Computed example of a mutant assay.
Amino acid sequence: MHIHATIEGIQYQPFFGRKLNEYDISHLQEALQTDASFLLRFPDSSQVAVSVWVSPKRTRSYPFARVYDTYGFQGKKITLIPVYKDEGFDGERDYLQWDTVSLMSLLGVYVILGFYSHAEKNPHYPNKITRQQMDINFLLEQFHAVMNYRSDALHWNLVQTERLAEIGRLACESYRVISERTGVKMHSFEAVEKRLAVFSAGREKFISFSRRMAQEAQEREFRTVQPKENLKGKKAKITILNYLGGEYHFTCDEVEIHENSLLLMEGKHSRDASLPSLSDIKDGLLKMILYTNLKDVSLNGMKYIPQPVLKLTTGELLHETPQIVETLNILLREARANGFWVMLNENLIGSDER
């Protein structure tokens, strides 16, 4: 099953964003070490909301939940993403993909691409590093630049992608230094150079390469049941186009057809708790931001009316603690305001306040 859709713009009212701690720009290092999302204050008293990715891969450490937490802020929203991250030969290595930047452009989020310049040897693995920190001086320059930027997130992000090779080389050199200083073997720098060559070849080649990688990842996910899913229906590929020229490749966890309606379900599962974690729920809500704004939805050439559904499943009976009741009440208010449904263990909920 392959769904195609378009997005003309984003309208969404979040209810779940947490209260963000505020830091002065001079305390950026402290902010990065303390919070995944925060407010940053500048000398002229202006503020921005900042979210931080610990890896360019969107399936690590809930980056969508971090971006979601800034989404209710009325001013500029900025997200920090490393161009690539190497955990050492015994760990993972991830690269930035075009659709990540394009998705942030669609959401109106300014992207600052960074690189790691400090790390420590992981005490549990001979060839793995930990406690990686982005280069603060580089980030400070970028923050001041984006604050003086008068165009929208799309144009800023396009300019950022033109610097991919430059920032990638800074990252590569930093990892060489980290490797020498810690004695940790990193992944092949030759492979990194090949990826930098893709970055250097221009935006179109980077887009083409990234989309091929995204489609391959989509195909792998399409064939895989994730441990945080408890699904009974059919998965479907979904490709979203928008007027900015962005193309987004996702996998819809579960799809059901009811006459002319197409239920698009994002599943979050908890095996050991009465409700999936708040980070899991927020990760699912970022998909609701997309799905509630879909237009021209078609499946196998047939047009359908999309109905987004956030499907929560649990491995045990629901224990209605005050915290769970409050979480569900907030979630249902957000669902009503934005036009998606909430399903809990195969039952639609939300006709009345709990």
Rank of each mutant, 00 (worst) to 15 (best):
F89I: 11
D90Y: 15
E92P: 05
E92G: 07
R93V: 12
D94H: 13
Y95L: 03
Y95W: 13
L96P: 12
L96H: 07
L96S: 07
Q97W: 13
W98H: 11
W98P: 03
D99L: 04
D99E: 15
D99F: 03
D99G: 09
T100G: 14
T100Y: 08
V101E: 09
S102T: 14
M104N: 14
M104Y: 14
M104W: 12
S105F: 07
S105M: 11
S105V: 04
L107A: 07
L107N: 13
G108P: 11
G108K: 11
V109F: 13
V109M: 08
Y110K: 02
Y110G: 01
V111F: 08
I112L: 10
I112D: 02
I112E: 04
G114V: 08
F115Y: 12
Y116E: 08
Y116H: 05
Y116R: 04
S117C: 11
S117V: 13
H118L: 09
H118Y: 07
A119C: 03
A119S: 13
A119G: 13
K121Q: 13
K121D: 04
N122G: 05
Y125R: 15
Y125S: 15
P126Q: 10
P126N: 15
N127W: 06
N127R: 06
T130G: 07
R131H: 10
R131Q: 08
Q132A: 05
Q133W: 09
M134Q: 05
D135C: 05
D135R: 04
I136C: 10
N137C: 03
N137R: 05
F138T: 03
F138W: 08
F138M: 06
F138L: 02
L139E: 03
L139G: 00
E141Y: 08
Q142A: 02
F143Q: 01
F143H: 02
H144Q: 00
A145Q: 05
A145Y: 00
M147G: 01
M147T: 00
M147W: 03
M147E: 04
N148E: 04
N148F: 03
N148S: 04
Y149P: 02
Y149V: 01
